[in-house]
Nucleic acid binder design. Structure first.
Lengths: 197, 197
DNA sequence: GAGCGACTTGATCGATCGTTCAACTTCGGT
DNA sequence: ACCGAAGTTGAACGATCGATCAAGTCGCTC
């Protein structure tokens, strides 16, 4: 077969793993299915990733990176309220219009990673939270906002986007989810207005 | 061994399955592990539930029932705002102080059920939503509240509790989660105040 | 063109999976 | 005392899992 550098193969396998996890769940994501999705023999998967666990850790790194990009891309560089609003909107739009496999695989893998030795699950959330905090902190640099308020806003934005995602992934109804996204943003607006006054 | 009626055995197996799913995930919830947790031989599991899938469906029924009980128990019989607030508080408290296996197993199984033929996943959410709607509708009987507003409130309460649960199950930090629960209730309050005025 | 590291792959391993079966024991009704 | 229904259970089935290995093939360097 056509020769492929290991780095590129690893990339293909990570993409295949995300797709298989999203459509078959962690328990259905077998090494054979992932290899087949990547058009590679089973032995090639183990040539690139010594164990299945190492492959899954690479998938988690990829997902972590994806979240960071989405957050940074949606930094509107406004005041705290506008920035929080923009980040939340960016997340909801990403769920709605981006690759649905990414959100689905994230939910699947986070509970999987929770049970691994040095649970790398937290890394996805903690990293996303850290990025959000730094974005919000810069937006608040000109205002009088307590650090703990920044953290609280970050938590609320995260919780709202998670709550939205769970329902969206459960029902998979796009038009309904679009309305719900508006509702969610309205909830954030109401809370910000009441707490940043 | 001591003779046990099938109905009672089925009950034990459902409880064992919930515990195993919560601690080992759906992919780690093997028939042998569940049978061992229930102190029953493997063959007994298949005597009570013809297949593993049927056992999992029984687990989903149990979880659905649990949610209904929590919602009904926390109906404060006040106006719409007070009722929504009470139900949300009840859910958050149930997550925080109830059996952590129940919430964890729910999250695990919902994504599993999503991939079954006649995805029974939706039943947990839809049933919970229906109960919530009927509770809110009765609370609104004396007020002027549009039916679609009732649904919207139900969605927001659900989304907030889901968002709370995801973070709580990820970090498992009780004291932090207790503060976050207060924040979540505050978010609902702000939104209700802005939208029911 | 010889040599070597990088990559490919079919075949196969032992472990574990969900499920089945038949033999066995207990219990309630007659 | 007898009998059939209900419950128990060890042993085993074929399928599939993650992982391994050895025998390749390709492409670059000297």
């Amino acid at each position: 077969m056509a020769r492929v550098p290991a780095a590129e193969r690893r990339n293909d396998l990570v993409n295949a793993a995300i797709h298989v996890i999203a459509s078959h769940g962690v328990e259905g994501a077998t090494t054979r299915r992932i290899a087949e999705e990547a058009n590679a023999p089973l032995a090639t998967l183990h040539y690139c990733f010594h164990t299945k666990e190492l492959l899954f850790e690479a998938v988690i790194e990829r997902l972590t990176e994806q979240y960071r990009e989405v957050l940074i891309e949606n930094d509107v560089h406004g005041d705290v309220a506008a920035t929080a609003r923009g980040v939340l909107r960016g997340l909801l739009n990403w769920y709605l219009e981006g690759d649905p496999d990414l959100a689905s695989a994230t939910i699947e893998l986070v509970s999987w990673a929770q049970r691994q030795k040095d649970h790398p699950a937290v890394s996805v959330y903690s990293e996303a939270f850290n990025v959000m905090r730094s974005i919000l902190a810069r937006a608040a640099s000109g205002q009088e906002v307590a650090p703990e308020t920044i953290d609280q806003i970050g938590y609320v934005v995260g919780a709202l986007s998670d709550g939205f995602a769970v329902n969206w992934l459960t029902y998979a109804d796009r038009s309904q989810a679009a309305e719900q996204a508006e509702t969610i943003v309205g909830v954030l607006d109401a809370w910000l207005a009441a707490n940043l006054a």
